[in-house]
């Protein structure tokens, strides 16, 4: 697809081990300019590794073992480290879960912003400072000018995450990878940060990969959603389709298990069992052992994500009429 800003093709990531373990296995994802793609899954499904692979922030024993990552028509997974470093923080920025560890506690917010801006843009100190204040205003921090002099600990959790977002915007990125950006925040603050991210995406025409375990956040913020299970893609498609009429039995189970206000269920539908560990993946479909519709074929043959007529891709043998 030529219109994609980010194109992940058949990406695999291994955990170096006596017998290498597949942490990500054949992931295909693409992201159009101005689009917000949600990546959702349980702990250990490979959400964060997907983000880290795009940024090439993986450290040993993790390594990319196959596939290609294309950004704006350039293959970036083979770029020399020096070039990748120029891209990182400039064209592709990242927002992490915990704003307290993402900021350096011994420098003021202004120092960190100005340094990042000058790293990426040809501006002098004064111009960078003005730019820094603009960014803080853009992310909704009151009295931006004075706040530049404050240290991270002088901000509340929500304001701190706004600073982190301002920092991510410093290089005028076209793609932001946000890894659980609201998980550490309170509900009312979480809503503010999600609304801010959506608004920035629209006003700047950026794309966002939003990694989260919260389906509610996906519903409110994303255009499309990818559901990961045990390092494999279970289902990907427009949010409305996937959430209202999920096709993969895992997606169905996951959505049913979320309590809803006013549902008054006596018991929540639960998926029996747990996600297989990375060192105990079955030869067939990774979900086979927990699937209520499992067939013999599922236990031995791995389904690939197949596009349906409505644009949703589902990796399930039920879809193929096997």
């Amino acid at each position: 697809m030529t219109t994609s800003l980010l194109d992940i093709r058949n990406l695999s990531v291994e955990l170096a081990h006596a017998a290498p373990l597949k942490v990500l296995d054949g992931i295909n994802l693409h992201l159009a300019p101005g689009e917000i793609l949600g990546v959702v899954g349980e702990s250990g499904a490979g959400k964060s590794v997907t983000g880290a692979a795009v940024m090439r922030l993986m450290t040993r024993p993790l390594r990319q073992s196959g596939g290609e990552i294309w950004f704006d028509g350039t293959r970036i997974d083979t770029l020399p480290e020096a070039q990748m470093q120029r891209l990182r923080g400039k064209d592709i920025a990242m927002i992490f879960q915990d704003p307290l560890t993402a900021l350096n506690p011994v420098f003021t917010v202004g120092q960190q912003l100005i340094q990042t801006i000058r790293q990426h843009l040809p501006l002098d100190q004064a111009a960078a400072r003005a730019r820094a204040a603009d960014l803080l205003r853009e992310v909704g921090i009151p009295s931006a000018e004075e706040r530049l002099e404050n240290y991270p600990h002088e901000f509340s959790g929500g304001m701190r995450q706004r600073v982190v977002i301002a920092l991510a915007l410093a290089g005028e990125p076209r793609l932001i990878i946000a890894d659980e950006p609201t998980t550490a925040l309170d509900v009312s603050i979480q809503a503010q940060i999600i609304a801010l991210l959506v608004e920035l995406t629209r006003s700047r025409g950026m794309s966002v990969v939003l990694i989260t375990h919260d389906m509610g956040v996906i519903a409110e913020a994303c255009d499309r959603v990818a559901v990961l299970y045990a390092g494999r893609l279970a289902e990907v498609g427009p949010v409305r389709d996937v959430l209202t009429a999920p096709h993969h039995p895992y997606t169905r189970g996951l959505i049913a298990a979320i309590p809803r206000i006013g549902a008054r269920l006596k018991e929540l539908p639960q998926i029996p069992g747990t996600m297989p560990r990375v060192d105990a993946l079955p030869p067939g479909c990774a979900f086979a052992a927990r699937c209520p519709f499992v067939m013999e074929h599922c236990k031995t043959h791995r389904p690939d994500a197949t596009p349906r007529p409505d644009g949703v891709q589902v990796a399930c043998w039920l879809e193929e009429g096997q």
Partner: peptide, 23 residues
């Protein structure tokens, strides 16, 4: 406010306009 801002599966594509301010 709390009930309004719960991220919910039923509010697809509508990041709720949240109340300003913090605790």
């Amino acid at each position: 406010l709390l009930i309004q801002t719960v991220p919910s599966l039923d509010t697809i594509g509508r990041a709720s306009a949240p109340l300003k301010g913090e605790v």
